[in-house]
């Protein structure tokens, strides 16, 4: 008979710390979801382990996105993976921090096919380069765009544009 385990955040934290003790930077719980910060070298291995673990079974990549923290030295960019285990009905958030000078991280497309466009979007918005991605091109904006608009240094309104005359609207 198979032993039924109630998978809780504590259970996950303990399991991951046992398996990858040196790759886990921190584990926190906020709003009932586990935030795990991991080293970027091990990210694919860790997500694959979560996906194929016989008890945890995080079989669903809910979303993948980037965040920019300009004030964090050498950890300016972060990639956030939301995972969901349908079997245990528990969610999980994995963070990886990257220096903005070298924003490279292995691709997840080999593990989840759905990561393809999510990684392209993250590349476009934040300039994170996903090594091994089959087709890492800009997806939403025009292809000639050379910058990564969701980084914090880019203002919402481009001052160099002359075609937007808002003086009649009091701006």
């Amino acid at each position: 008979m198979q032993r039924v385990v109630k998978v809780t955040n504590d259970y996950i934290a303990e399991a991951i710390l046992q398996k990858f003790p040196e790759s886990i930077r921190s584990i926190e719980e906020s709003y009932a979801t586990l935030d795990i910060v991991v080293a970027k070298e091990k990210i694919i291995e860790i997500i694959t382990w979560f996906k194929t673990h016989e008890v945890l079974q995080f079989n669903f990549l809910t979303s993948l996105c980037g965040v920019h923290f300009p004030d964090k030295k050498d950890e300016e960019l972060s990639v956030v993976y939301h995972m969901h285990s349908f079997i245990n009905n528990i969610r999980l958030r994995i963070h990886v921090f990257l220096p903005i000078s070298l924003p490279e991280i292995p691709t997840l497309t080999g593990v989840f096919a759905g990561a393809n466009w999510m990684e392209r979007e993250t590349f476009e918005f934040y300039g994170v380069k996903f090594d091994g991605h089959p087709d890492l091109r800009i997806i939403l904006n025009e292809e000639s765009m050379t910058y990564h608009p969701l980084r914090k240094e880019y203002p919402l309104i481009d001052d160099s544009r002359t075609d937007k005359d808002d003086k009649y609207f009091g701006r």
């Binding site: 906020s30 709003y31 979801t33 935030d35 809910t62 979303s63 996105c65 965040v67 956030v80 939301h82 969610r91 958030r93």
Partner: peptide
């Protein structure tokens, strides 16, 4: 301060909001 993820069942599926 903090980060939350919340999702609802939209017309097309899981519509999620990840708010930092």
């Amino acid at each position: 301060k903090g980060q939350v993820y919340h999702s609802v069942e939209g017309g097309n599926g899981e519509l999620g909001f990840y708010l930092v």
